[in-house]
Amino acid sequence: MTNFTTRLDAKFEQCKAEGRSALNCFVAAGDPNYDDSLKILITIADAGADIIEFGMPFSDPAAEGPTIQLAHQRALASNQTLAKTLQLVREFRKVNQDVPIVLMGYYNPIYKMGCGDFLAQAREAGVDGLIIVDLPPEADDELCLPAIENGINFIRLATPTTDAKRLPKVLQNTSGFLYYVSINGITGTVTPDFLVVEKALIPIKAATDLPIAVGFGVKTPEQAAIIAKFADGVVVGSALVNIIPSTIDENGKATDETFEQLTKLTTALKQAIIEAR
């Protein structure tokens, strides 16, 4: 647990006060290019995203399904870098102080930049949390503990393989929220059995006061509504990311259609979540 309060804590408090689950939206930084990525951030925030998980592109995203792999590739093809991802957050913060940004990705680009440098820049840019797929609790000294020292939440993933023996280890230095991965698998592929997920959360809720967001395989407002009944947050990624390749023009630029569809889906997801309880 941390002894500081972040934008994430405030957001979950707010959602709780409103009696609803939070909508976490995932998009990849620099997808399909830097300028459009900034507009996409602003678009989904304006359309009702409570929290944005912002993917840091990596050449080898081993936990991602095809949809998000391609998002990483589009971003890298448009020369996105970690430094530019931080710059996108900085620019977003000029127009939005409210929506927490959680950077999600893999360790190597951060390690290459240097953890100290990265954390200082992330904090100054207005990053609120980190989800680093390939840093399990056994590696907390690498980035998790330094992040907490810098006032940045480090959000851990719990999965269906996280048993009672392992759970305390997973919770130990987690703050902001806990991300429950609803399936054993990669992003955007299989849709989970929601009844199984609801049951899986029972021992976790008993073990922690942290808000719990559920993600992987949540694609439609209907599915989001089911999750929103029992989870503190609902994460939607691939369904949003899918809109980008199907609406960009031949030069890889977003079109009006891109922003319209993103707004439409985000609004519908939010509405479903609000009405769920």
């Binding site: 936990a63 390939d134 840093l135 399990p136 851990r156 993933l157 719990a158 393989t161 392992r166 054993n184």
Partner: peptide, 9 residues
């Protein structure tokens, strides 16, 4: 051991 949580157990 730099792997996703799913694989840790």
């Amino acid at each position: 051991r730099f792997v996703a949580e799913t694989l840790m157990p």
